[in-house]
């Protein structure tokens, strides 16, 4: 029992929580943005993979780290454009299109990677983002090393979560976004163009997803390998439901999942006689449990997954 308390009381755990949470925060916010407008984007897993690859590739070829992030975001927006074209303009199945994008983007990532980077026994690396100690705050005991010695993209992801919470609930744009996801006919009747709103939300959301992927190669690790997203995209889709489509809760959900993950990693070293697979399962089982509790009260956007066609009711 005291071993468990030691883990929770270590600053290292909390630092790891923020690090693990960052790609989830990006991805969850991206999926949330898209779903708030009424479109499910199951391309997330592939878009994250592609973002991880293309961001890394840009930096590997001499671009600076932020340019790498930007390139990743742009590539995400491009996949978002494809998804929007298929699901919004053509009204195709959002599930099928999204899964198609995941398969396509994942394979394309590996293909481009193989084409441009020579095969080597150890994967080529870049110099990733370095932790920034926030002046003043990082000197605080415990809290300092736990929360304020992260890389810049981590701070950025939290800032975006707060920004999105503001935009969604406090601006006309956020209202237009929510109305498009709740009742696009009503939005149209009030002079808001739900098609443009959906395009914008999907593209911006996909850009965030790709940035989440790029965080993996440019901050968490320093190289790319094709399976590195490891289902994080799907976790994000579940976290959106857990968060009841609210940005603030999405941030909390991502941190909670990351806590389970960081906790089980450390628990493995303490309880050596339990098979490690049990620990690996833990964050997922706890997530499902949390989801089961939270999702019952979730308010789904009413027009989620319903294509909107002008003049049709």
């Amino acid at each position: 029992m005291s071993a468990i308390l030691d883990i929770v009381a270590s600053a290292g755990l909390w630092a790891a929580v923020l690090r693990i949470a960052t790609p989830l925060i990006f991805g969850t916010l991206g999926a949330l943005l898209s779903e708030r407008s009424g479109v499910l984007n199951l391309g997330i897993e592939g878009i994250m993979t592609f973002g991880a690859m293309v961001g890394w590739l840009a930096v590997f070829n001499g671009a600076d780290l932020w340019t790498g992030m930007l390139v990743a975001a742009a590539s995400g927006a491009l996949f978002g454009l494809v998804h929007a074209g298929m699901t919004v303009s053509l009204g195709l199945s959002q599930h099928v299109t999204g899964l198609g994008i995941t398969l396509f983007a994942s394979s394309l990532s590996y293909y481009i990677f193989r084409l441009t980077v020579p095969l080597a026994s150890t994967p080529p690396t870049v110099t990733p983002f370095q932790p920034i100690a926030v002046p003043g705050l990082s000197d605080l005991p415990f809290v300092g090393p736990a929360l304020f010695t992260q890389t810049l993209p981590t701070y950025l992801s939290i800032a975006i979560a707060l920004l999105l919470a503001y935009v969604v609930y406090r601006t006309p744009l956020g209202l237009a976004l929510r109305m498009s996801g709740e009742n696009p006919h009503a939005a149209e009747a009030q002079g808001v163009d739900p098609i443009r709103v959906r395009y914008g939300a999907i593209m911006a959301g996909s850009a965030l997803m790709a940035m989440g992927g790029a965080f993996l190669t440019l901050s968490a690790f320093n190289s790319f390998f094709p399976t590195m997203v490891q289902g994080r995209g799907w976790i994000c889709i579940a976290l959106v439901v857990f968060a009841s489509w609210r940005p603030g809760r999405a941030l909390f959900g991502a941190l909670l999942f990351a806590f389970f993950d960081a906790f089980q990693l450390r628990l493995q070293t303490v309880l050596g006689d339990v098979p490690y697979q049990i620990f690996l399962m833990m964050p997922y089982i706890l997530s499902i449990a949390a989801l089961a509790v939270m999702a019952r009260r979730a308010r789904v956007p009413q027009a989620l997954m319903q294509p909107y066609r002008r003049g049709e009711r």
Binding site: R178, H185, V192
Partner: peptide, 18 residues
């Protein structure tokens, strides 16, 4: 068939697009 969003508040429904 009302052009309203059940999950939003009255005020939000009224304000959309204004």
């Amino acid at each position: 068939h009302f052009s309203l969003a059940p999950n939003l508040t009255v005020l939000e429904n009224v304000m959309t697009g204004t």
